[in-house]
Design a protein around this nucleic acid. Structure first.
Lengths: 254, 254
DNA sequence: CCTCTTATGTACGTTGCCGCACATTGTTGC
DNA sequence: GCAACAATGTGCGGCAACGTACATAAGAGG
């Protein structure tokens, strides 16, 4: 796990030259990009807005860590965040992935005092940050906010459940294809940045195993890649290669 | 999957000779055995009680099935219920287990329209049944009910997440030991009823694989078993054999 | 008691991934 | 352009679990 950075604890990320109005416009723009906040009635969002801080994040930044208290919760407007279970002996396995359809740290509204999985960004992106205590308060009082958050929590649950079965049943190649599809769905464009080393941590397999599987996909003309950058070439082909779990997750999640 | 029965759709399980008062006493007794209902203030429970119906279930009864609408939700007072993801090709993998600490069908309060996993009893037991719509209504209105249900949903999430990683990382023997411990925690006594065939469906491995692993545990003096009945002999020893995931689940769940 | 069924033990070749080690090839910084 | 590094390719022995098949053993029911 080389130089993973934690997010700056406070970082007033809106440049100080900006006016308050600019900042509020930022918040509203980002909020509309997130499915949960974007689904709120105008009035509710206005109430929440003062508590929301825009942030930017880079690849491989850590949002939450097992056993650390969850102080802030993040609503991504762009980018991807992986939820990863860490095991003794250093093995790590991604159990779910979230983009602008979700919220990182949802367990804090469910009564969790601390994180149990690592939340790690898979890409650059933007998000709105809110104090866990503030969110919890609104969550308890506003049915309009509660509904989409719970809906997301449910989608998360079934994604993790499908993952649990998938890890038991499917080959590295199938799971790699699935992972690429889920990532592609959450990023703009057909080209993104990952190393095999990173993928091996997500899939919980050897880096060498990723190399072989990726090579197979490349030779089949489904993807191309070189030194940390991957291009999706044949999405249909990938869908055919991926296990059922990709479709299951997509279809179960409303 | 031999003769799995669905629960009777209505079955007024309280014998008709019983009086209404008896029935209500039943409800209150069972409610106190369930951690979620048992945590409710007296007044709240009184309000909910008319909606609750006591039921009994036998081994291998199906509470919910993937894609079927979730009509009823169950608060177990005793017994165990497994949540199982079914994959194409007939492979099944248990992703979580619930006893009197939880509620079967929790996703219905989170906005799920239908089940995504199979909920199957692992033992005989008793539960309180409630219409999903009724529960949802109380859930939305009562913070006192919402809190413990969400807390349980969170525990469920981390159990499933740990399972996802566990399936990737640990041997059949380790996972069998873990599974026996989780089961033992939720049942009275040291002897319970399972066949290797059933266990193989839970662990998602061959029945022959269970045979070998179980034999190893027996020869190590940790368990004894014969034709569908298992006795726990050395709990400490099992804990030493099981993977970290047993402890992780226990310690994360508050 | 004897048959029938169900549960369990065991074997054998195969496969997917492991741990490990090392070669090769782009990129970056000087 | 060259050295240093980072990312990727590849080989090999080993092992856990697979699919399959069959043998044994313990109740159940007549």
């Amino acid at each position: 796990m080389p130089n993973n950075k934690k997010l700056p604890e406070d970082g007033n990320t809106s440049a100080s030259s900006r006016t308050a109005t600019d900042s509020k416009a930022d918040v509203m723009r980002l909020a509309r990009a997130n499915k949960i906040l974007g689904a709120l009635p105008e009035k509710e969002l206005e109430q929440l807005a003062p508590k929301l801080t825009p942030i930017e994040f880079k690849v491989e930044e850590i949002f939450h860590q097992p056993l650390d208290p969850i102080r802030d919760v993040y609503f991504p407007a762009s980018g991807i965040v992986s939820l990863i279970t860490l095991l003794e002996g250093g093995l790590s396995v991604e159990v779910a992935v979230t983009g602008s359809e979700g919220v990182v740290g949802v367990s804090s509204v469910m009564g969790a005092k601390f994180g149990t999985v690592e939340a790690l960004s898979q890409s650059d992106g933007q998000a709105l940050k809110i104090r866990a205590t503030d969110l919890r308060e609104h969550f308890d009082q506003s049915p309009a906010l509660r509904a989409p958050i719970l809906q997301y929590a449910h989608n998360l649950l079934i994604q993790v459940a499908q993952n649990a079965a998938c890890n038991r049943a499917h080959t590295v190649e199938q799971r790699l294809a699935r992972w690429l599809l889920l990532t592609h769905d959450r990023l703009d464009g057909d080209k993104f940045i990952f190393t095999q080393e990173f993928m091996s941590r997500m899939l919980g397999v050897r880096r060498a195993g990723v190399s072989v599987a990726a090579n197979t996909l490349r030779q089949a003309g489904l993807i191309d890649y070189s030194r940390g950058s991957i291009t999706m070439i044949d999405r249909k082909g990938l869908e055919a290669t991926a296990c059922e779990c990709y479709r299951a997750i997509e279809s179960y999640s409303v």
